[in-house]
């Protein structure tokens, strides 16, 4: 226990040492988390775009079918 306290104190300079190391790794972890979120957002956005385009292409080739289905929903 005492050795843990000694380690955390870093000879009385714990504040400076841990402020440096803490902020560094907090920032690096935050970057990784942000990249993961960013990836999900982009996949959802690009997926929505491609579905929209697919629907438009379908609507062009099967216009009658599309209007029938939308009429059924209304």
């Amino acid at each position: 226990m005492e050795s843990v306290m000694n380690f955390l104190q870093q000879g009385g300079f714990g504040f400076y040492v841990w402020a440096s190391f803490g902020v560094t790794f907090a920032l690096m972890i935050a970057e990784v988390v942000q990249l993961g979120r960013n990836r999900r957002t982009i996949l959802a956005r690009v997926g929505r775009l491609s579905r929209l385009r697919g629907q438009r292409a379908d609507a062009g080739s099967h216009r009658r079918h599309a209007s029938e289905s939308s009429g059924g929903q209304a």
């Binding site: 300079f13 400076y16 440096s20 560094t24």
Partner: peptide
């Protein structure tokens, strides 16, 4: 330098 020199392990690489 006392224990605070250990900041070198992230300061210089960064």
């Amino acid at each position: 330098q006392k224990e605070y020199y250990r900041i070198i392990f992230i300061h210089v690489p960064a």
